[in-house]
Each structure stands twice: as C-alpha cells, then as structure tokens.
Design a protein around this nucleic acid. Structure first.
Lengths: 233, 233
DNA sequence: GGGTTCATATTGGTCCGATCACTTTCGCAT
DNA sequence: ATGCGAAAGTGATCGGACCAATATGAACCC
C-alpha cells in the first residue's frame, strides 16, 4: 500500500537536519561521535558516514579528523560554497547565462556599496585596484586574483553576506583568467582598467547611480567579449 | 617537508571531476561500477562511495540502484539544487539578506520576461495567477504552490535557466507559507493580489519598465512585512 | 515469429569489524 | 606549576559479506 521506500542514508541526513532545526545542536557546536550517531539513528556507521559526507558537502557540517563532527556557522558563505561548481563546470550557453545574472546583480550591488561602504571598505577596494595593474606585463595569478578580489570587496561592502556569497559563486577564477588573457591579446586591458577606475571613483564619490552605470558597462563589456570570442568552453 | 596530505576521498572526487572535465565521460553517460572505479583510482569501495556521495550531493552525479552511476545533464538546475538549503535554513538577518538579493534579481528578471516571454509562457503565468486566488479561504498548499509557481514561471520566461535556478534557490516554500499566513492575518492578501495582477498586466502588455516597477513593489512589500514581523525564524 | 515470464547476472545499498592517523586529554616526572 | 609523553578518543580507510533493485537473456506460450 503505497509505502515509501526511502534509503537509509537519506533518512539519516534528514534526522541530522532535524536535530539542527530543532536547536538540539547549534552552529559551531559538536555532534555526537559517528559511532554514537549511527547507533542513535539506527544505521550502520558506513551509512552514517555517507550522510555526514553529504551534509559536509552541503556546508552544514564539518568533520575534523581526530576531533569530531561540528555544525558550521551556517553562514551564507558556508552554505553557498558548493555554488561555485556551476561557474567552474559551465561552458558556452550557460556561461552567458551566468554573466547575464551578474549583469543584474553587480550593478545593483555596486550602487548599494556606494551608499554603504565604510572608509575601511573603500581603502581595501582601492588597494586591490592598484594591485590589478601592478604587474601589468606578468599576468600572473596576481592580476586575476586582484581582479576577483576587487569585485568581491565591492560586493562585500554592501554588508550583505548572502549577496556576497551568491556573487562569488557566479565568479569563476578560470573564467576570469581567460578574459584577462583575451583582453591582453586584443589590447583591451586598458578598457578594463578604465572600467575599474570609473567604478572606484563612483564609490569614493558615493554616487550610486554612477556606480550602477559603471558596473553595468563593465559586465556588458565582458559579456560582449565572450559572445565575440566564440563562446567555447 | 611541507608535503600535502590530502584525504583519499578528496582525491577520488577530484579525479572523477577530471574525468568529466576531460570529456572521458559526458553528461548523461554512465560511469564504471563503484567497484571498478575504486580499483582504478586505487581506493577502497567505501571511500569511493563517499566520493560518489559528495558528487551526487553537488548534482554532478546520479546513482541508480541496480543500474549504475551516471553523470547528470549538468544543467544549472542540476548544479544549483543544493542551493535551496540556504533559503530553508536561513532565519532572521540572513532571511532579510535573501530578500534583498531577490529585490535585485526579480525586477530585472521580470522586465526581461516582459520582452522575451512567449505566448505559451504568458498563458502559463496567467493560469497560475488564477490559481493563487482560487481557493482564497482554504489557504491550502495550493495557494502557496501557485504563488511560487507564478514567480518561477515568470523567471523561466526569460529563457535563462541559470537565472531561474538561482531565483528558485532563493525562494523558500516554508517562508512563502509564513508570508501568506501573515498576510491573511493582517488582511493584506488583497495587496498581494494587486501586486500579482499588476505584474501580469505588465507582462501581457510587454512593458519592461512597468514589469520592473511592479516586481520591485512586490518584493519590497514582502521585505517590509518581514521587518515589521519581528524577523523571528 | 512475437511476446511474456522468470531465472540469473549485474550493480548500487547496507552492514560489520578491523586498523590507521590525527587530536585531545591526562598523568607523570621535572 | 610546567613540560612532556603515553593513552584514550575520534575520524579515515580498508576489506569483505550480504541485501535490494535493475538489467539481461533464455525458456516458454500463443
């Protein structure tokens, strides 16, 4: 009679989730031993480990060898860590879609940052801006890292951790590296610098509208480059 | 001497990822059996299973009991399935942050939908709109489902699957249920209906600006309600 | 010959017990 | 009291066994 047949591991996952939802264990706290949990939930240790592995992958739990299993802080950045897989794996069509989403988020986020950023935030953004063009001929990982950091610092300045985590998930290191390489070839690195400086100026001027416009131009430039590039993976 | 010590399971995960990245196995294709994979990667079957569990959780692999392990289609919806955990677990501050992100995405998405939606899309959106107010006193799961479906149908009309997946991840069924209950109490269900109708009208009129404005009003109404509510979990 | 049925092989799911590796704790000697 | 080393605690890995769901193919009936 229509009785559901749920895998043991899945049940274990749900029960651990329930333990957290009901406050039995809070963020940062330690769970019982794998062995104890297995007994308590009535499953084998192997299955319990797979359940823990799943929750670890989701960013809900964290295993420390020799120490124990802990609940993460459950911050957005913890839960959205898996998110980056999308940007990593995506190619062609999906990559364009990702950029389209960023074109919706970054302008709004940059505008918000212009209004909310603290002086410390602005200083950090300025530092990273300088580092992007620092070793301009080397094109080591420094340039790419600084570029990623620049945008992430801006989004972080909004004070919205969820927004920052989502945006970070949409930004792929490997993709950014390709863009920089491409711009280097096309000699458009200067254009990128202009974009960045314009964004930075808008932020320091605390001008949300200008910030929004500058961010839009920047994302669209990258988007256009990708379409022209042949959108290969 | 600084030699890295990476867990066996982690290595297995990376190697399977590499197999996919190098095109050895493509989307929808079947992988070797767990036992074969374990031998090939030089790990025990237990560890291999944990690696597969991790990739399954990420939405990269899919295990079919008795059949085998398959690579998913790797669509954005596959990879972002885990995303919903955020909206499920979030409370208080984070819930506000989530709504703030939606306030950036939905207006832009709705505007885009106004320009791109096919007649079939619009019909579907209209159907769901009718179903929201259908059983207006019952407030069963139907109303909540229709509400969620209404917004998802709109976002899906943009033709951007990534955008749809991200937005869906930011929409929590349980949260929506709370909002509806709350509005019922406050007698503001009528306001919600107004919002929805305004959005629908803008879409059928293919008016991006009106659509953007209507969506903004709607999200902000929910956001304001949450702030007034006391933001408890 | 075509279709159905059922035994069998294949394959993922679960369980058990043992051992290794890392961390923490505690007792002992200084 | 302090530092150090042994021991206990705990996750990580391994190997094998058996169960459950699916796929395969042979036998059978019409």
């Amino acid at each position: 009679m229509g009785q559901e047949r749920t895998p043991v591991t899945h049940r274990a996952v749900e029960q651990v989730k329930a333990m957290i939802a009901q406050g039995e264990v809070g963020p940062g706290q330690r769970l019982p031993t794998e062995r104890d949990l297995a007994v308590r939930l009535g499953v084998s240790r192997s299955s319990m480990r797979e359940a823990i592995r799943a929750l670890t992958t989701l960013g809900v739990l964290e295993s420390r060898h020799g120490a124990g299993v802990y609940v993460t802080a459950l911050r957005p950045s913890d839960l959205l860590e898996t998110f980056s897989v999308l940007a990593e794996v995506s190619q062609g069509e999906t990559l364009l879609e990702v950029l389209q989403v960023r074109r919706m988020l970054e302008p709004a986020a940059t505008a918000l940052a212009a209004a909310r950023a603290t002086p410390a935030d602005l200083e950090r953004v300025g530092d990273l801006l300088g580092r992007i063009d620092g070793g301009q001929d080397t094109l080591g990982t420094d340039t790419v890292s600084a570029d990623l950091g620049f945008h992430q610092a801006i989004v972080a300045s909004t004070g919205n951790a969820t927004l920052a985590a989502v945006n970070e998930g949409l930004s792929s290191r490997t993709f950014n590296a390709r863009v920089w390489a491409g711009h280097k070839e096309a000699g458009l690195a200067a254009k990128l610098r202009e974009d960045h400086e314009r964004i930075h100026e808008a932020l320091t001027a605390r001008d949300p509208d200008a910030a929004r416009a500058a961010a839009t131009v920047h994302v669209m430039r990258v988007e256009r480059w990708l379409t022209a590039e042949g959108r290969a993976g």
